[in-house]
Design a protein around this nucleic acid. Structure first.
Lengths: 166, 166
DNA sequence: CGGAATAAGTTGACGTTTCAACCTATTCAG
DNA sequence: CTGAATAGGTTGAAACGTCAACTTATTCCG
């Protein structure tokens, strides 16, 4: 219906993967750790930052989510005592910081989760496959990353261009 | 944290792809056609069936969704007049059938949607990439497809085995 | 044949995501 | 310096997905 056969077949497979895989991971984390895959991702991202903290807008980029979503998620994680909000020294910035309790939880959940990732992904693929997967997804992402990554200058330019043209 | 470097990098990219890509497609379809990507998938699947109808349980497999989700979605699509429920000749089976209105809508939306798919996916990749993508996702799916696909015999056997062992 | 187990579907409640509206600190242009 | 625009964030409502409970038809087994 506007894709050739080769593309159509690839598309069906890709579709199935990105429907089934997140569902599988979400479901396992939910059952065995009481958190969503997204929440896990946020906490894992925080754990790798100096001071285990990050400003929400940056967290949004790292976790591939909207600012609104991040705000909600951080609220939930705060309720669990795994994360705490720390208003940044300057301006309206808000930082999310992983608490000790959160860090402990993460250390506990990590192995469980990654065992599942290994089972579902890396055990199934050869090292070759992994290399290809990395290469191809990396290409796809380049086209998917929103204009955020044009850098401040390009963004500013683009913004005024839009303004002028309206 | 339990993945080696190569795997970790691949994992981050894969994660970003299957977060960003569905989000992008969903958002475009929602804006320009007032339907979700999943709904589109369901209607597209129906359109390829003889009589443009399919039993819900089969639709669930084709669309990679739970039966419950399908039931809800079909209700929504029914409200739009794009799909109608037809109780199967035999038994408790329920079929979903694409209406003419639904077909028309689909024909209208299809090109718009696939243009976006092309833009985000196939324009970015070489034919080589597409081949690899198909190959790797197909492998992943093999491990992801739930036990549904063991086939009726294996399923029955497995079921009684479980029963006996409890 | 008769009851237990199972398959197919529906439903309602609950939690999550998205979207739009909003707020307020900061920056920029004139 | 002042007002407009923008960046960062929050919030509430509506839409959506998941889960568990439930219903009814069918099949299996003794």
């Amino acid at each position: 219906m506007w894709l050739n056969n080769r593309e159509w077949s690839a598309w069906l497979h890709l579709l199935a993967t990105f429907t089934l895989l997140p569902a599988a991971l979400d479901s396992q984390l939910q059952r065995e750790a009481g958190m969503s895959h997204f929440e896990f991702g946020v906490m894992a991202a925080l754990s790798r930052q100096p001071g285990r903290r990050l400003q929400l807008k940056d967290l949004a980029v790292v976790a591939n989510g909207s600012l609104s979503r991040l705000s909600h998620v951080v609220s939930r994680l705060e309720r669990q005592g795994w994360v705490r909000r720390v208003s940044g020294a300057r301006g309206r910035a808000t930082n999310a910081e992983l608490t000790d309790k959160g860090y402990k939880k993460l250390m506990e959940v990590g192995p469980i989760h990654f065992a599942e990732v290994r089972r579902l992904v890396f055990d199934v693929l050869t090292p070759e496959d992994v290399k290809e997967l990395r290469r191809v997804t990396s290409r796809l992402n380049a086209g998917l990353i929103p204009e955020t990554n044009l850098g401040p200058l390009a963004r500013r330019t683009r913004a005024s261009a839009l303004r002028r043209s309206s």
